[in-house]
Each structure stands twice: as C-alpha cells, then as structure tokens.
C-alpha cells in the first residue's frame, strides 16, 4: 500500500508540473502533426495503400514524439537537485519510476487521442478488421514504449550526451515491441493478418520489461 501511495504522489506531482507548463504535451502534439503531414506528402497514399502503411507511420510518429518528450522527463527532476533528494528519500526507487512512467503514459495517450482522428482524416482510414482491438493494442504498445523509454531516459542522465543516448538504446531494445504493434495495427486496419499473436507478444514484452525496469531502477538511480 505504501508503494501505491508513493506512486500516486509521484504521478500527481508529474501531472501538476505538466499542467503548469504544458511543454511536453504541446511539443509532442505539434511534432506528431508535422510528421503526419510530412509523411502524407511524401507518400501521397490512396486509401488502400494508406491502410498498409499507416500502422507503421502512426507508431513511428509516436516513437519519435515520445522519445523527444522522454528526454525532457527527467531534466525537470535535475533542477535544484530534486533527483538527489529523491535518491535520499525513504520511498523506493521503483515507485519513482512507476509514477513517472504512468505520467508519461498519460501524456502519450493524450497525444494519441488527438492523433487518431487526424490520421483517420488525412489518410482516409477505416478499419477492415476488428477496430475495437485497437483499444487494446494502443495502450499496450504505448506502455511498451513509455516504460522502457522512461527507464532509458534515466539511464541517459548518467551519460555525457543524453539526448543522443536514449534512441541509441531504446530503439534496438524496442524492436520486438515495435514489430508487434505495427503488425497488429496493420492487421486490424487491413483485416489480412490475425493480430492475436502480436497482441500476446506485446503483453509478454510489457510484463517482462516492466518487471525488469522495476527491479533494476534502484541500481540505475544509485549507479556509482
């Protein structure tokens, strides 16, 4: 229960910080909008083609947008040595990580909520498979990106050029998850591939890596 209270405290703090500045949300939103427009111009897709490619484009957009935002996620904690204070606090480091990851999850989900109608409009989408499955795929995929991203962003704090570090580590580690979410989304949109297998893979990925992040975050935070 203590863990839950600490997570909630961290989550509230992050949400309040974001509410006051609204930096990462606006940044992510505008960036995603730009990427959507640029890709639409680059491919000039017809409805059939866009069904094939928009799963990939959607996740690539979200990947890049969340990478940008996640890079900033821990910088806030570094000002006034807040991070050092948190290292000394008796609360577990895993709670700090989990709270931060949940907050990022909420931000990215917000971006998705805006992005989804945009995609439908710009790419003339309507799902040929079971559209409601997207409601499962989206959160699972987002969590896969955000949990690892939050973890590796914290890892990046300890390196010399952290902006560069996050994608270098996050992308190779995320490849199975990316493959799964893109395949599942494309499968749902085109109705050609059964998305079950990929959804299961996403669940496994989420469980495995969330556990690893929670267990290793303390080591990472006190890595000296």
């Amino acid at each position: 229960m203590n863990f839950y209270r600490h997570v909630m405290a961290h989550l509230r703090k992050d949400l309040r910080l974001e509410w006051r500045s609204r930096d990462s949300m606006t940044g992510m939103l505008f960036f995603s909008l730009l990427v959507v427009v640029v890709f639409a111009m680059a491919f000039d897709p017809t409805a059939a083609v866009s069904r094939q490619i928009s799963g990939g484009i959607l996740w690539m957009t979200l990947l890049f947008a969340s990478t940008m935002a996640l890079n900033q996620a821990w910088t806030r904690e570094q000002r006034n040595s807040v991070l050092d204070a948190q290292r000394m606090a008796p609360a577990s480091a895993a709670a700090l990580f989990f709270g931060k990851a949940l907050a990022n999850m909420i931000f990215v989900t917000g971006v998705e909520a805006v992005l989804a109608p945009l995609f439908t409009v710009f790419y003339n989408l309507h799902a040929l498979g079971q559209g409601w499955l997207l409601l499962i795929v989206m959160p699972l995929g987002t969590w896969a990106l955000v949990a690892n991203g939050t973890f590796f962003a914290a890892l990046g704090l300890r390196t010399r050029n952290r902006e560069l570090m996050l994608p270098l580590v996050l992308f190779p580690i995320s490849i199975p998850a990316l493959l799964a979410m893109i395949q599942a989304t494309t499968g749902i949109l085109t109705g050609e591939i059964e998305p079950d297998l990929w959804i299961r893979l996403l669940v496994v990925y989420d469980v495995v890596f969330t556990t690893a992040c929670l267990l290793l975050f303390d080591t990472l935070l006190n890595a000296e």
Binding site: T159, R160, N161, L164, T219, L220, E224
Partner: peptide, 14 residues
C-alpha cells in the same frame, strides 16, 4: 556505445 558515452565510475553498472 552506452559504455563509451557513460561518465566515469558508472560505466560498468550502466
């Protein structure tokens, strides 16, 4: 790459 870019003293843990 991570090892190379990390600051001294943390390389091994990261």
């Amino acid at each position: 790459m991570t090892r190379r870019m990390s600051t001294d003293g943390q390389t091994s843990t990261l």
